[in-house]
Amino acid sequence: MLFSAAPILGGEANIMVDYEVTETLDVKGQNCPMPVVKTKQATDNLDEGDILEVLATDPGSMSDLGGWAETTDGVELLDQTDGEDVYTHYVRKTE
């Protein structure tokens, strides 16, 4: 239902969330530990306040990215959504 408007509007803009995504990291198909490791590397290149969208197919990414964000300074997990095949995570850089 949330996805339904996307094809009508076209383009790649993600309209299902309120977050203003700075960058999107696609780790679809990759497995542990890569989703967490690549997310960390991607956030290193961001500025404070930037939001990273992470697209993953690894079901373990739900727990792993949550644990990583909770334990790691300077990042905050805003949201995680469990789509049909893709798990989407929103990480904000806080410092």
């Binding site: 542990c32 530990p33 967490v36 490791v37 997310t39 960390k40 590397q41 990583w68 334990t71 790691t72 300074d73």
Partner: peptide, 11 residues
């Protein structure tokens, strides 16, 4: 290797 890279991601 998995634990090392993941721990590095944790800082």
């Amino acid at each position: 290797l998995i634990l090392a890279s993941t721990a590095a991601a944790f800082g």
